[in-house]
Simulated assay, not measured.
Amino acid sequence: MPPTSPHETRPDPSALIRETLAPLEDEIAEADQVVADNRAYLAEKRSRGLDPETKELLEQAARSPEAPDSLRKLATQVERGQITWDDVFRGGAGELGREFLSDAFRVASEHVSPEPVTPVEPPPEALAQGVDPTAVQDEMSQTLEEARMEHDRIWREALE
């Protein structure tokens, strides 16, 4: 419907949608910052190597009857001075090291189950402007899935 007078203007629907979705964009920017912080943390952690407590835990785990064969063999090589645990986690322990890290990541993944995420409902203002709520929820679900995949990729890199 056209304006009733030359002085009356209609709000720009695109501007209203951008304004309504701005908080979601802020959340995405915040998630991007968390990913960047995790990358920086992992890079710094990798540069320091494993702490003595973690090395001791690996050695204790290797003595367990339930320890995977790859862990036991690596612990033997560490004990003999052929490699270090830092070598293993830097990817410098050959196929056996890769096998152990793959097993360790698989087991860790099995023990971590992501909490279900409540779908985000679009604000009423967005709905009033004609925003498709299904499209917003689909986009948020896709963003969440991408964030999870990026998180997993970063942690896998840390173990390579």
Rank of each mutant, 00 (worst) to 15 (best):
R72F: 03
T118D: 14
G91F: 11
P122K: 01
L16P: 01
L71N: 04
P11M: 01
K73C: 03
M1L: 11
F105A: 12
E115T: 07
T76L: 11
A61E: 14
Y41S: 03
T143I: 09
A40Q: 10
A31D: 13
G94K: 09
R156N: 03
R18F: 07
A75C: 11
T4M: 15
E95N: 07
S5N: 06
E27G: 04
T9S: 09
S64P: 00
S64Q: 02
A147V: 01
G97A: 08
T76Y: 09
P52V: 03
A93Y: 01
A135S: 15
G130N: 07
Q129F: 06
L96A: 06
S14L: 12
V107E: 15
E99Y: 04
R153L: 02
E139S: 15
P114I: 00
R10T: 08
T84L: 07
Q77V: 07
L144Q: 13
T143W: 15
M1Y: 02
E121C: 04
G94C: 04
A36M: 06
E145K: 14
H111G: 08
V112S: 05
P13W: 02
V35A: 14
P11V: 03
P119I: 01
S14Q: 09
E160A: 09
P13N: 04
A43D: 11
A29N: 09
A104P: 05
Y41N: 12
G94V: 08
L42D: 12
A93S: 10
L21A: 13
T9H: 15
L144A: 12
E125I: 06
A108V: 01
E44K: 06
A135D: 10
E19S: 15
R39C: 02
Q137W: 04
E30C: 04
L101I: 00
E160L: 08
R156H: 09
K73D: 06
P124D: 10
P119M: 02
V112D: 06
R10Q: 14
L42C: 01
E160C: 07
K45N: 08
T9C: 00
Q137N: 10
T20Q: 11
P11R: 07
L127R: 08
L74M: 02
A61F: 07
H111M: 07
V35N: 05
G92S: 11
L159T: 03
S14D: 05
Y41Q: 09
S5V: 05
